[in-house]
Simulated scan of single mutants.
Amino acid sequence: MELKKPESYEELLELQKILNKHIPFLKTTLDVILALDDEFQEWLKELPQEYNFKNWKKKEYSREKELEELADILFFILQLANRLQGLNLFYRSAFKLWDNIKEKIDFSNEELRGSLIKNMKYSLYGTDDRDISSIMYDYVIICHSRKFTKKEIMDKYWEKWQKDMKRPSEDWNLKER
């Protein structure tokens, strides 16, 4: 595979496989889910003040920082998809859904916002494969509701992927590998 900016879900999976060969290994599927959840929590803290659960802490909103956290979530979703190879079909179809969503999803609606967040958490910690495979679907809906395009997410993933490929020699602890 030629290393280039990804344009498809399959190319994202391949890039993630390459990166996974160079990064600290998450031992279990639960480790990947916990890492994904950690990034999800970081995303929640980057939301604008009116949606941010951490409302006691004043913070200026940055769309770029929110985009970075959404890209970080994608890294772990792809890691999970590669680990659970039999479920890639479900992830792929959810990813393709992105281009076909026509309706506006109003993130300012408190009930809907709560449902999106709870659905992602449920999908992360669901007990069967269907719940795990719905993580990508939840992710796509969240990104769409926050008005991030697939292109923005993939471009940010590519940018961060290139930086992450340099990190093993710079700042990751690889002594246990």
Rank of each mutant, 00 (worst) to 15 (best):
I153E: 02
E170Y: 12
V140D: 03
N55K: 05
S133L: 05
K57P: 06
Y51A: 00
L26K: 07
L44Q: 06
D106I: 07
N52W: 02
E42C: 00
F75A: 00
K151W: 03
S8P: 01
K96V: 08
Q162H: 06
W158R: 02
F75L: 00
I77M: 05
D37V: 01
E60H: 11
F40S: 00
K96W: 04
E11C: 12
Q49E: 12
D38V: 04
D128E: 15
N52V: 02
D131S: 14
H22A: 14
N55M: 01
L34S: 03
I73K: 01
L74R: 08
C143R: 09
E68P: 04
F40H: 03
D171Y: 15
I135F: 06
N55A: 06
Y125L: 14
W56H: 07
F40A: 06
F148R: 03
I117N: 03
E64C: 01
N119E: 14
M165W: 10
S145W: 09
I141V: 15
K45A: 09
E50P: 01
K104S: 13
K147E: 15
A94Y: 08
D128T: 12
Q16L: 06
L116Q: 13
L36F: 03
L84P: 00
F148A: 04
L15R: 03
K166H: 13
K151H: 07
P6D: 07
R167P: 08
Q16A: 06
K175R: 14
E66W: 09
A71D: 02
E10Y: 10
T28I: 07
Y125K: 12
E68M: 11
K118G: 00
K121G: 01
Q162W: 05
E7M: 07
T149S: 15
D155I: 10
S62K: 14
A71N: 04
N88L: 14
K147D: 15
V140T: 10
E42M: 07
K45L: 08
A71K: 02
H144V: 01
Y137P: 00
N88F: 00
N82R: 04
K150S: 07
K121D: 01
L74H: 08
E7K: 13
L30V: 14
K96L: 15
L47I: 09
R130N: 12
E103I: 12
E50Y: 04
P48Y: 04
K175F: 09
T127H: 10
L87W: 06
D72S: 05
Y91K: 11
I132N: 08
N100V: 10
M120C: 04
I117Q: 04
E103S: 13
L12W: 08
E64V: 04
L67Q: 08
F75Q: 02
N52P: 00
T127C: 00
I18S: 12
R83N: 11
I141F: 08
L15C: 14
K104R: 14
I135P: 00
M154G: 01
K27A: 14
K147R: 15
Q49R: 01
K163I: 15
L26Y: 10
N88P: 02
D155M: 06
C143H: 09
K151E: 13
F25L: 06
R113V: 00
E14M: 09
K147P: 09
Q49T: 04
T28F: 04
F148C: 10
L78D: 08
P6L: 14
I141S: 01
T29Y: 06
A94H: 11
K4R: 15
E10W: 12
K65Y: 03
L36D: 05
A94C: 13
E176W: 06
I135R: 03
